[in-house]
Each structure stands twice: as C-alpha cells, then as structure tokens.
Design a protein around this nucleic acid. Structure first.
Lengths: 190, 190
DNA sequence: CGGCTAAGGCTATTAGCCTTAGCTTTATGG
DNA sequence: CCATAAAGCTAAGGCTAATAGCCTTAGCCG
C-alpha cells in the first residue's frame, strides 16, 4: 500500500474535477476516493467530516474563485463600467463552471471560512458601489440587490429555466442596464 | 394488508408534508412510504419512476402553486402596483415554504407538465408587463429580468446568504423600486 | 542507530437508501 | 361467481456513507 500523500486540498481538487466532468450527482466519496487512488474510508483521514465537510470545502473554494474573478473584473474600472464588468464576470464564471456554481448554496450551517470568503465577495461589490456614492446601510441593500440579480440570472440560466429562443446575452444586457439605472437613482439618506 | 387506496396526488401530498416539516434531506421514498402507511416498494405502483419522478411531480405542483399566488396578487392591479404585488407574493411564498421553493430547480430534464406550469407562471409576468407597453421579445427579456430578481433574492434569503443585520424587507423594497424604474425606462423597439 | 509515535493507508462491517422481481390479496366488472 | 387488473407485500441486490480496528510507513528523538 504505497502512500499516496494526499492533502485536504488535493481531495478538493479531485472533487472539483469530478464535479466539472460529471455533475453533482456523481460527486460521492466513493468516486473521489477512486479518482485519488485510495479506498473510500481513507478520505476520512484528510476530510474528517466526511461528505458534509467536503461539500463545505468545495463551497469555500468556489466562493473564493468567484470572488477572485469579480475582483479582477473590477480593477481599473468604476461606475457603470465596473458594475457591468463584474456582472459579466459573474455570469461567465457561472456558465463556465455550472456544476461548481450549483454546488455553492448547499452549504447549510454558517461556517467561518465560508463566511470569510463570502465577505470578500461582498466586499468587491461594496467597493464598486462607492462609485455611486453609496455606503452604509444603503450600500448593503444595494449589494444585496446586485447579488440577487447576478445569482438569479446565473441560477436560472444554468438550470435551463429560460426556455424561449430569445438571446440570453441580450437579456443580460437589459438586466445590467436596469441595475445601473437603479443604482444611479438609489435613495440617498438625508 | 388493508388497501390504502393511494393515488399519485396523495403521494405528492405526503411528500410535500415531509418536505415542509423536515426539509429536503428527509424526503426519501422510505419516509414517504412510512407516512403513507405502506411499504417502500409499493410507491412504485403510483409513481413508477421512483424518486426522480416524485421530485418531478413535486416541482410541477410547487410551480403551479407559485403561479397561482402570483396570479392572485396581480388581479385588479397594473403597472408598478402589479409588479410590486407580484414580487411580494413571490417572496412570501418562498419564505413561507422554504423547502418547497428550494426543491424547485432540481428538475433536470425538460418535462411537459413542468413546462406547462412554468409557462403559466411566466404568463402572469408577461401579462403584468403589458402595463408598461412591453410585448414581443423585449417582454421576454423583461420577464427574465423579473424572474432573475425574484428568484435570486428568494434563493439567497432562504439559504441565509444575507448575513448582515440590515432589514430584508427594506432590501426588497429597494429591489422592487429598481425593477419598476427599469421597466418604465425599458428600451422600446423602434 | 534504535525505537517510538503519529499519520495514512487498508479491510470489514453496519445502517440506510433505491430499485427490481415475483408473489398474494383485494376489488371490480362481466 | 369468477377472472383479471390493480395494489399491496416480502425478498434480494447494489449502491451509498460512516465507523472500528488493524497494519505499515515516515519521521523524529534520544
């Protein structure tokens, strides 16, 4: 039994590869173990919480990835330009890695690492909103609106909920315009 | 073995009750069968496709319910008033039946009944959009935007993705305003 | 260099799930 | 009254996650 030399990060790597290739259904400890060249119970040496923890680790990793993409898209831009770029990056990530994106919201209990990653993601949005003069509570409400639009469109388009033949890119453009218009006229506290 | 006299609809009833009470994890054929007073394999007499079909039937039922609520909310209203009422009804249904709502998007393959129910739901939105003079392709894009916002906010709020203390109702109000503003200035084909 | 310890593998086992096969009973219609 | 179809059952197979306990490797420390 040659030692494979697995680490938690490598386990997550294998899990993400399986997720990308075969979807959420195929993500089982058995399949991850097979891919890592190890018996199923051996995974518990690295991911002691079993499947639940693996899913948590995946959510953290994916949230971090997404936050990276949004941060990259925002750099060097401001205002409508920044919001547009961030929303496009969001949608590009979601459609480019549909199974990863779908695996995101299944992390139930509030976890410290996940909270940190999510906070970073929200931070990017909040930063972009400063270009509209928004901060404090109104920036929070605006950021939630941004996330709702981005997530809703991503989620619905991934699951194939938009059945008609109209171009999705056009829909996304309209959606972005709606958002930027709303942000420009966002209520300012007195 | 006294005959229970089960029907597919009753199986779905029991499944929904379990879903409401104990969440998605607890929705198994075994638990549904126990609740119906029947051995697990007997369910296949009514839901021949097993768990997959049961989930499909649930999605159809929930989509129909949601469409009903939206239609009720829209009746007798128009314009911003109608959009506001529809979005509030949407969010009220989602938060009132979080597990049902979460069970919605897992229906993978395009099913005839599900398509019919979803079409009815979209129809309510399209009808409301006529109050803004929207029809044709632009109405489709606008309806997708409406769904994205409604679904995104519902999904994120149900899963607890909004962690800060700011009032969710206020966020929803802002979100609705953003949407109505966008609809009023929606691009009209020449 | 010897030995101890901890980590990373393994097999075996349990419990629970979905699903199929085949039998038995009930209810119903002719 | 009987035949048949529907609706229940038990049994069994194959999958999953998870736990328990054993063995071996690697590395460190005296």
């Amino acid at each position: 039994m040659p030692r494979v030399g697995l680490t938690p990060d490598q386990v997550v790597d294998h899990a993400l590869a399986l997720l990308d290739e075969q979807g959420t259904e195929a993500l089982t400890l058995a399949s991850v173990a097979a891919r890592a060249g190890v018996a199923t119970p051996s995974l518990y040496k690295h991911v002691s919480g079993g499947l639940a923890e693996l899913r948590r680790l995946i959510a953290v990793r994916v949230t971090d990835e997404l936050a990276d993409r949004l941060a990259e898209a925002a750099v060097g831009r401001s205002g409508d330009d920044a919001v547009t770029a961030v929303l496009r990056a969001y949608q590009a990530y979601a459609t480019g890695h549909p199974h990863r994106y779908t695996a995101l919201p299944q992390a139930p209990q509030p976890d410290e690492d996940l909270t940190r990653a999510a906070t970073r993601l929200v931070g990017v949005i909040i930063a972009v909103l400063r270009g509209y003069g928004l901060d404090g509570s109104e920036a929070i409400h605006a950021a939630r609106t941004v996330r709702s639009l981005a997530h809703g469109f991503a989620s619905l388009s991934i699951t194939g909920a938009f059945q008609l033949t109209e171009d999705l890119t056009t829909t996304h453009d309209r959606l972005v315009t709606t958002l930027t218009t709303g942000l420009r006229s966002w209520p300012r506290p007195a």
